[in-house]
């Protein structure tokens, strides 16, 4: 079990979460051309090592998170909310 420390709920097993995918992808604007969308939707860095990825605490607070995790060992380096506005709120409150 990988333990993910949800910023809202605390440490939980990864089976409470849904794996999203590569969190480093910047999705183009809705009007942007096919090549931009193609690269974002279909191409992957597929990093062997530490990558940023998205997970959703689907059986918990349902928040989407950005997780830095080593794909060679499964070790998690950091977890933060995917929504940067929420990060700001969390920081203000702490």
């Amino acid at each position: 079990m990988i333990i993910i420390k949800c910023p809202f709920c605390g440490s939980r097993g990864h089976n409470e979460f849904k794996y999203g995918g590569d969190g480093s992808i910047k999705y183009p604007d809705l009007h942007d051309p096919i090549t931009d969308w193609h690269d974002a939707v279909f191409q992957r860095k597929n990093i062997a090592g530490i990558q940023t990825e998205t997970w959703q605490h689907i059986h918990g607070c349902r928040m989407w998170l950005l997780v830095d995790r080593d794909t060679l060992t499964h070790k998690i380096i950091s977890v933060r909310p995917a929504n940067p506005n929420i990060i700001n709120i969390l920081e203000k409150n702490s």
Binding site: M1, H14, Y19, Q51, T71, L72, H74
Partner: peptide
């Protein structure tokens, strides 16, 4: 196992 991995070790769920 749902999440990306290069590790040849499975998980319990």
């Amino acid at each position: 196992d749902w999440y990306k991995s290069y590790a040849q070790k499975g998980n319990l769920p």
